[in-house]
Nucleic acid binder design. Structure first.
Lengths: 188, 188
DNA sequence: GCAGACCGTTCGTCAAGCCGAACGCATCGA
DNA sequence: TCGATGCGTTCGGCTTGACGAACGGTCTGC
C-alpha cells in the first residue's frame, strides 16, 4: 500500500462526476441515458450514489458525455499558484551541484510532477529507474547539458526538448555553469 | 462526439492492465485476489478478457495492486524523442512576436501538452478560455514576462513558476527580448 | 513415488446490476 | 381547464457478475 490513495469512495466520486459532467453539457438525465444506450433508471441510481456500475456502463456514459472515462473516477482540481525562483521544496540531491525544485506535484494522485532543475558541471546526476510507465520530458532553459538514457544521452541546447522512458536508467549532466531545465515527470 | 477516443475496447485494456500490473508486482493471481478480497475466479475471468467488472471490484484490485485505478483503463506508452530548438510544429500565433512550439502532444488522448514559448515585448498574447478543467503551468526560462489570468497577471523572472486555470481568460506578455518559457497545458 | 501445497481455470449457485414500465411532478399550449 | 410532453424517481423481471468448490497441472520434499 502506498500513498496512491485516490479518495477511498469511488462510487461517490463517480456519482458526483456524472452529475457534474452532465450539467456541463446541459443535457437532461434522460437524454444522456438515451445517447449512452443505458436505462435512465440506471443513470438515475448512479448519479444518486446508489449502485455499482459495470465498466461497460460507465464507458458508454463517458462516451455519451464525451469525457475521457478516467475523468469520471478522478476528482477535480483548483486554482492559481506561484513559486518564485529559489523557493519551493527542493527534492533530495546526491550532491550539491544539482537541485530539483518541485513546482507542481500530483494533485492528489494525478499523473505528472513538474520540476525546475538547476545544475553545475561536474558529477552527472544519475537516476535509478522509477516506476514502469513513467515518462520524463525535459526542456533545457539555459546552459547546456547531456540528457536522456544513460546508455545514449543527448546534448541539449537552450530550447531543446527530449522525452524518454523514466523506468530506464537516465542521466542529467550539466556542461555549462548555471544550467537550468524544466522537467515534467509523467506517471502515465 | 470529439476525438476523445480512448481505445474503444475498455475490457481488453483492463484485462491487459490487470495482468501487466500483477506481473510487475510478481504476485500470483490467487494472492492478488486474496489481498483484493475478490474471488480468484473473478480475477481469472477479468484477466482473460471475459466479463465486465463492477467499479468496486476494479477498485479493490487497483488498491491491491497499488495502482491509481485510472491506470487500469489507460493504455501504456512509448519511447525517446528529441525536438531541437526551432524545430517542431508551431501553433498558430496572432502576431509575429509570439511563437509556441508543440513539444509533446497528448498521446493519444492523454491529458497534457507541452509547449516552448518564445515571445518579444509588444502586444501581449491574450488567450481565450479553453475547455473547462484545463490548467496551465508556466516556467519562465529566460527574459521576463507578465503571465497568468488577464485580470491579475503576475510578473515572472527566470525560474519562476505559475499555474492557473486555463478556462479563464489569460495572458502572456513578454517584458524583455528573447523571453522564453515552458508551458504545460493540462486537460485534467 | 507420492502426498502436499500452490497455481490458474471451470462450473453451479446466489446476489445484484441493468432494464422497461409505471409513477409523480413540472411546464406548455390549445 | 386539461391534455400533452418531458423530466427524474421508484418498482418487478431478467440477465449477469461475483462467489465458493472442485478440477487438472506443476513443483517440492519427505
Amino acid at each position: 500500500m502506498a500513498g496512491t490513495r485516490d479518495s477511498g469512495a469511488p462510487l461517490a466520486v463517480i456519482a458526483a462526476s456524472l452529475q457534474r459532467e452532465r450539467r456541463r453539457t446541459g443535457l437532461s438525465l434522460a437524454e444522456v441515458a438515451r445517447r449512452a444506450g443505458v436505462a435512465k433508471s440506471t443513470l438515475s441510481q448512479l448519479e444518486s450514489g446508489t449502485g455499482n456500475p459495470s465498466v461497460e456502463t460507465l464507458w458508454a456514459l463517458s462516451v455519451a458525455l464525451d469525457v475521457p472515462f478516467a475523468q469520471l473516477v478522478q476528482p477535480v482540481r483548483p486554482r492559481v499558484q506561484v513559486v518564485r525562483a529559489g523557493e519551493g521544496p527542493r527534492v533530495a540531491a546526491e550532491h550539491a551541484d544539482y537541485t530539483a525544485t518541485l513546482l507542481a506535484s500530483c494533485p492528489p494522485n494525478a499523473r505528472r510532477d513538474i520540476y525546475l532543475l538547476a545544475a553545475e558541471p561536474g558529477r552527472p546526476r544519475e537516476s535509478d529507474p522509477h516506476m514502469p510507465g513513467v515518462v520524463e520530458h525535459v526542456v533545457l532553459s539555459t546552459g547546456r547539458a547531456l540528457v536522456g538514457l544513460t546508455e545514449e544521452p543527448v546534448e541539449l541546447h537552450p530550447g531543446d526538448y527530449i522525452a524518454y522512458p523514466g523506468d530506464l536508467p537516465h542521466v542529467f549532466k550539466a556542461l555549462e555553469t548555471a544550467t537550468t531545465a524544466v522537467l515534467v515527470s509523467e506517471h502515465v
